[in-house]
């Protein structure tokens, strides 16, 4: 929530003058996150888990939709097309196929949920690709990525807790969550060793 809120905040027209909108954010990753949250939270109206759960689902969908709108429409001029080039079809197709093959239940909602779990684990790739292409990440982008990466990393602790105390585990969510966290690891390394020391992340050219 902090990471997504940061992104909306930094892209919000009231908060910053248009030219200050942070560059270096991958619109493609933001679209993948929007698809992820919509596909996963379709049960928003049918399954009530808790006020917190529903509130966060609404927030995730609304904030990522707002980010996509602000980035690709309102501030289209500052969107960096040249560096945001990772082909998302190569991420979406395998996740869709895998969701059809490996799932808990062959029903539309469950397959969409599974697709969303797989997609989330690779949704950050366009962003990491863009950072490697631009060779650097703005500090605010680094904070956003750190928050986003630690979100799923913390879930791993929760899954361990639930395994030992509730004797419950969801292998699909766990495997995808571990893959997703691993994808952030090299970024976490850069974040800890550089950004937290006040330096900017500049990748070797």
């Amino acid at each position: 929530a902090a990471g997504i809120g940061l992104l909306v905040g930094m892209n919000c027209p009231k908060a910053v003058k248009p030219r200050d909108v942070i560059t270096g954010i991958s619109g493609r990753s933001q679209i993948l996150f929007l698809v992820t949250y919509v596909a996963r939270y379709l049960d928003l109206l049918t399954n009530f888990v808790s006020v917190y759960n529903t509130a966060m689902k609404v927030f995730f969908i609304a904030a990522s939709a707002a980010t996509v709108y602000l980035m690709l429409f309102k501030f289209k001029a500052t969107y960096d097309h040249n560096h945001d080039t990772l082909r998302v079809e190569f991420l979406i197709a395998p996740c869709a196929l895998l969701a059809l093959v490996v799932n808990h239940d062959f029903t539309p909602l469950e397959i969409l949920w599974t697709f969303s779990i797989y997609l989330e684990s690779v949704a950050i790739l366009p962003q990491l690709f863009m950072v490697s292409k631009t060779g650097e990440a703005e500090t605010i982008t680094s904070h956003y990525l750190f928050a986003l990466g630690s979100y799923r990393a913390l879930y791993i602790l929760n899954w361990i807790y639930r395994y030992y105390f509730d004797n419950f585990f969801d292998l699909i969510a766990i495997v995808a969550g571990v893959v997703q966290t691993v994808l952030y690891c090299d970024f976490f390394y850069l974040y800890i060793t550089k950004v937290l020391k006040g330096k900017k992340i500049v990748l070797p050219a």
Binding site: N47, N53, W113, D170, A173
Partner: peptide, 10 residues
Amino acid sequence: EGEQLFHDEL
């Protein structure tokens, strides 16, 4: 425990 009826995580 059995099969999970619906997903209670984000």
